[in-house]
Each structure stands twice: as C-alpha cells, then as structure tokens.
Computed example of a mutant assay.
Amino acid sequence: MLRWVISFIVIALIAALLGFGGIAGAAAGIAKIIFYIFIVLFVISLVMSLVRKV
C-alpha cells in the first residue's frame, strides 16, 4: 500500500511540474487518503500483535 502512496506522490509531482494543477491536486489527495488508511491498518496490526503476545 505504501507503494501506491509513493506512486501517487510521484504522479502529483510530475503533473505539478508540467502545469496540470487539477491532476496534481487529485493525485496528492488520493495519496493522502491511502497514506492515512495505511497508518490506521499499521496501528491495528501493531495492537493486534501486542495483544496476541500477552
């Protein structure tokens, strides 16, 4: 999932350099959403691994 975030950030940067503001904003927004989903899933998996060890 982190690869998707990196790819959308790269797309946003390339689009911003070429002057495509709408595409850059959309790609950056998608990257933010996927990143937050990744963080939530990471925290859930961390908590579940700690609970299973106890």
Results as ranks from 00 to 15, higher is better:
L18N: 07
F20A: 12
S49T: 14
W4G: 07
L18P: 02
A27M: 03
I11Y: 09
I23G: 04
I14Y: 08
V47R: 06
F20I: 06
K32A: 05
R52Y: 09
L13R: 14
V54G: 01
K53H: 01
L17P: 02
F38K: 04
I30W: 08
V47Y: 12
G29I: 00
L17M: 08
V5I: 08
F42G: 09
K32N: 02
F38P: 00
I23M: 10
L41V: 08
F8D: 13
G22F: 06
L17G: 13
F20K: 09
F42S: 10
G19P: 04
V51R: 03
A28W: 05
A26L: 10
G29W: 00
A26V: 10
Y36W: 01
F38M: 02
F20L: 08
G29L: 00
L46A: 13
L13P: 03
V51N: 07
V47K: 10
V5M: 03
S45M: 12
V47W: 11
I33F: 15
L50A: 06
I23F: 10
M1T: 01
S7H: 09
V47L: 15
R52I: 14
V47Q: 05
G25F: 06
R52C: 04
L46Y: 12
G22C: 04
A24D: 09
I39R: 10
A24Y: 08
F8I: 02
W4K: 09
A26Q: 01
I34Y: 05
A26N: 01
V51A: 11
A16I: 03
I9L: 14
I9H: 05
V43A: 15
I30R: 06
R3S: 03
I30Q: 02
A31K: 05
V43K: 12
V51S: 04
L17R: 13
L13N: 13
V10F: 10
A28S: 11
G19C: 05
V43S: 14
I14A: 15
V5A: 04
S45P: 04
A12S: 15
V47S: 15
L41C: 08
F8L: 15
A31F: 01
S49V: 13
G29P: 02
